[in-house]
Structure formats: structure tokens, C-alpha cells
Design a protein around this nucleic acid. Structure first.
Lengths: 156, 156
DNA sequence: TATTGTTATACTCTATAACTATA
DNA sequence: TATAGTTATAGAGTATAACAATA
């Protein structure tokens, strides 16, 4: 049962970007597993949680917050609406306010508890003295990249 | 130009798992941008770098190292072979040894330099005193999850 | 003129099942 | 009997272009 992998040198393990990707895939997998109980994918779940915290949010604002393209938000919202989890109300002629239905609120509340537990366990995997560094590091890797890819516009 | 986003509360930002995902997407995007110069995607690039460090690696061992399913490795290898970047040599009746061609080595070397620069810049985004925590944190988030999803087998 | 929502479409990456051939 | 490579296929997530209606 000896494995030829023993001899492998993996230069990618030196790269934080690669570790970031592998960690993200592993963690997302674990989260999706737990969300199966609600028949939710992590993307659907994140939208539900955003609406839960911001009842009546505009669809376009949800797009910006989650960095999901308008075109991709359409089937996402349609699916949750078809399941009776969210409702849409016209704000004006073009904008829609999204809110949770009663069923959606119950599901989102239950999912939130599961997510909280999951995220707590995630944090606990990291040695205690490093935990306070998790968020600052991830924010630095994320946000600074955004700033580079989306250069500041004069109007902002 | 005031943005309604100002009022948004995003509960997801409290979750390390969500920050991990967003950071990963942003960083992968930046890497893919730089790899466009070589007409490579980050997955193709990671395979090339693995082969570069392990000439003659078996296709199945590459699958394990990169955690890519056998079935998904096939078109990946085929594409790089069609581009003349890698060559395959039968080891026995079923295994294939993969190595870089001359063109593949040149491309992989050039890409490696770009990746190194990218990863260095990535690290530099993180405040100095937190940099030593990057790898330990990401490894803890990644590997411990693996251990849970792939429980230890008796033979290992 | 810029924004919102929408449709259609394509690409990347991943996942599973089933098959052949070999160790 | 387990492994290596393959084929076919499906799904999630993301990307762009184009359009109508509205602010």
C-alpha cells in the first residue's frame, strides 16, 4: 500500500494563493454538506442570509454586496421565489424589493444557526494564538485585490 | 451617486469561511489575469508546475496531489499535450509518465517566475507582523477539513 | 444616459457512473 | 480485486452581449 506520493515535491504548497484556493474548496465543501439538510447551496444560502439581515433589499444591491452579476442573480432569485422562500415587491418601475417569506425566514434562521456552528468549528481548527489574525489576513488578501481590479472611479 | 449599499449590513463578513471564499475568488482572478499571457488557466498552470517539479510523474499521482478526479484530468492532460507542452510515456500497461517538453519547460519556467512575483505581492498585502500566520492558518483550515471528510483508512 | 431586470449563451471546474485494460 | 486511464454526462458558478423598460 506504499504510495508513490511520498516522493512527490509539491512546489505549490509554498504559495499562499494555492493554499488559499485549496482551503476555500475544502471549507466550501464542508459548508455545502451541512446545507444539504436545507436543500441549499452556499450561494443560495448567502443570498438568503443577506436578505435576512436586510429585508426589502433591492436585487441590484444584493448583486453588489455578493459580487454576483445581474444576469446570474436572475435564476438564483427565481429559484428561491419558486420555492416560496422569498417574495418580490416592485419599488418603482424597474427595481424589486426582496424579502423573506415566513417559510423563508424559518429556513434562513435554522440555516444561520448551522452556519454559525460551522464557522465556530472552523475557527477552532486554527491554533488559538493565530485566530485573531484570520479575518485581517483574509480581508487583506481579498479587499486589496479588489482595489486593484476595480480601480477607483472619479464618481466614487 | 450615493449608494444604497451604505445602509447594508452584511452578516456574512463576520464569517471566516465567507471571507475565505471571497479572498480565494479575488486572488484566483488576479492569478488568471497574469496567466493569460501564457494562455493558461490556473488549473493548467498548477499541473504544469507540479510536472515541472516532478518530471515523469504518473497521471494518477498528479490527480492525488492536486485533488483532481481522474475523469477530469483526462481533458486537462490532453489539452496540454495537444499544445505540445507535455509528453506521455507508458510506464507499464496502464500507467503514464508525464513530463514537460522543451516548449513546456520554457513556458512553465516563465510562468513560475510570474507566479512567484504574484505570490510575493500577495504576501506583501498582509501587514508584516501577520505574514508568518498566513500559511499555518490556511493549512489548518484546509487540512483539518480533509481529515474530517476523508476519515483515516486502516491501511494508511 | 445610466440603471434595472432579463434572456441567451458559453466557459471553467467539478462530480458520478460505467467501461476497458492491466497489476 | 484494486488500480489506471478513459468516455459520457450533468451540475454549479461565472462571464459577456444584447435587449426592453424605467429613472
Amino acid at each position: 500500500m506504499a504510495n508513490a506520493n511520498d516522493k512527490l515535491t509539491d512546489p505549490l504548497l509554498e504559495f499562499p494563493g494555492y493554499l488559499l484556493r485549496r482551503a476555500s474548496i475544502a471549507v466550501l465543501g464542508g459548508l455545502n454538506q451541512r446545507l444539504e439538510a436545507f436543500d441549499l447551496r452556499h450561494t443560495e444560502s448567502s443570498l438568503l442570509q443577506l436578505i435576512r439581515a436586510n429585508p426589502g433589499i433591492k436585487q441590484s444591491d444584493a448583486c453588489r454586496a455578493l459580487e454576483i452579476k445581474r444576469a446570474n442573480m436572475v435564476p438564483l432569485v427565481a429559484k428561491l421565489e419558486a420555492r416560496g422562500l422569498i417574495s418580490r415587491t416592485p419599488i418603482d418601475g424597474r427595481s424589486q424589493a426582496i424579502a423573506l417569506t415566513k417559510a423563508g425566514r424559518e429556513l434562513a434562521n435554522a440555516a444561520f444557526a448551522v452556519i454559525q456552528t460551522f464557522e465556530r468549528q472552523l475557527t477552532e481548527r486554527v491554533p488559538k494564538h493565530l485566530r485573531s489574525a484570520i479575518a485581517p489576513i483574509l480581508l487583506a488578501l481579498w479587499r486589496d485585490d479588489c482595489a486593484r481590479e476595480y480601480p477607483q472611479e472619479a464618481s466614487l
